[in-house]
Design a protein around this nucleic acid. Sequence first.
DNA 1: CGACTTGTCAAACATGCGTTTGAGATTCTG
DNA 2: CAGAATCTCAAACGCATGTTTGACAAGTCG
Lengths: 237, 237
Amino acid sequence: MRLRFWVDPRRLALPVTEAARDDPDPRDHRAAPGATRDRLIRVAGALFAERGFARASVRDICARAAANVAAVRYHFGSKEALYREVLLGSHRELRDREPIPRLADFRRPTDALRAWLGFVLRFLLLRRPAHSYAGQLIARELEQPTAALTDLVRLVMQPVRTELEHILGALLGDADSPARRAQLANFALGLCVFHEFGRPVLERFGHPPPTDEPGVDALADALASFIAAGTRALRHR
Amino acid sequence: MRLRFWVDPRRLALPVTEAARDDPDPRDHRAAPGATRDRLIRVAGALFAERGFARASVRDICARAAANVAAVRYHFGSKEALYREVLLGSHRELRDREPIPRLADFRRPTDALRAWLGFVLRFLLLRRPAHSYAGQLIARELEQPTAALTDLVRLVMQPVRTELEHILGALLGDADSPARRAQLANFALGLCVFHEFGRPVLERFGHPPPTDEPGVDALADALASFIAAGTRALRHR
DNA sequence: CGACTTGTCAAACATGCGTTTGAGATTCTG
DNA sequence: CAGAATCTCAAACGCATGTTTGACAAGTCG
């Protein structure tokens, strides 16, 4: 079978209308339907999160998933397609699990800020069984941008940042201006993200970021006070 | 010549006491002494800063330096040794160019904080001809830690962080405690570093970090107010 | 001069990578 | 049952990488 453009072989025989849908998959009438495919996505998520795209090799992924190397091509078409599948899956999981805190849902902007920080930090830092890899995947994406980064920013990060800017706008009050708000959003984002992807350095300094619920909450509390005060300070300049 | 442990062939003939010194190199009596070696370090610095260690290939470096691939082994022993040479060279250059601002040199802790931020941000962000790659190299090292990271933290980053902790201690006054100070140091470091290594994302958001002197100064001003106010806020908790 | 050091070079080596092949099981379907 | 679809597998392909080789020119020095 020589292919110019790769087509999922499992879908070749399906009617177009059926194949066009992408959520329910009607080909599950095997003994362990989609078992290898699922295992690959799970293992690849962990390995991509741990090492980044480039350094997680197809052979490693397949070995840990007890699958043949050719399974990646068969089920996804390529390593990069598998990566996108993992990213989108994490994104979906994230979206369905917890909504982004919105300014309008809180009495005071500082409360909204605290909620926003808790949301983002849990997402980035928390490690627990069956927890999504999305946060670490995104942190990896910052380091070694792949072609998927642009989509990732647009789909996942932009909505979160937009909500942050609303909150900061409320905190700035009269002094609100696009440039100032963007600068402060950079600050807040940096403070959150650095705790995940600066982890190797912070660990060597002897001050590793928290990975459990109470630790993350405490960090969010401190950051909320810190950012609120800093924002107020920049209001009067 | 089969070697268990590689030894710089140029130093094999030198007396030990001479070879032990590492700054002046007394073997420069060729037509263009050390020319290839110097070119390699220069080109490698630029390429490592641009792409990181893994993605800057020996072949690329040598091609740009108009040198043979074997030159890396001959002059440095391995790619990693060349990398360490580049890192240490940048470190030396940094150290000699500008001293770390010290708390004791300023009347008010906030002035010291402002100076510290200016120092670090210039180091990380500024792009100008003949500017050191050290900042970008360090940012790269955060992303894909190599074996050199531990040394880098100890030699280069630790002294900078220590001075920051002194400044923060002064700002905290009575409320100073090791944990609080370390947390705030993480905040300040994150705010600085994120502007360099979060660059790909910030650019996609439409708010790229500054790269010129006035922009960096403005950022340092804003960050100084921001951090000072945030620190004061965390004093009363 | 003649031995030795220094530096450069083209070519090959060894390894790891993503991908592809073609054959062979297993299961579904008419 | 016969044939098609689904899935797995060992092996190889083609490529890029860091490293190593052995030869060779040019300079140094006794």
